[in-house]
Amino acid sequence: MTLDQMSPQTLVRIVAVNGKGLLRRRLLEMGLTPHTLVKIRKVAPMGDPIEVYLRSYVLTLRKEDASLIEVEVVSDE
């Protein structure tokens, strides 16, 4: 499963971050590293990008980029 497929309010744990180059480095550096807990908060009005909460802050990223992040579901409220 990847991060872009998750619906709002789901809590997930990152399994792996795929991709390469600048994009992957950015994702990792913003704290999207394996084992990190991420909560999906919202989808933008036009259906993309998504808003997530991790490491006590709010981040937005595009679904296309989120699809590089493999996750496992921890809980969905």
Partner: peptide, 11 residues
């Protein structure tokens, strides 16, 4: 290439 759009939404 499309540019990474990884942006913080500050409080």
């Amino acid at each position: 290439e499309p540019v990474p759009f990884v942006l913080e939404l500050p409080a």
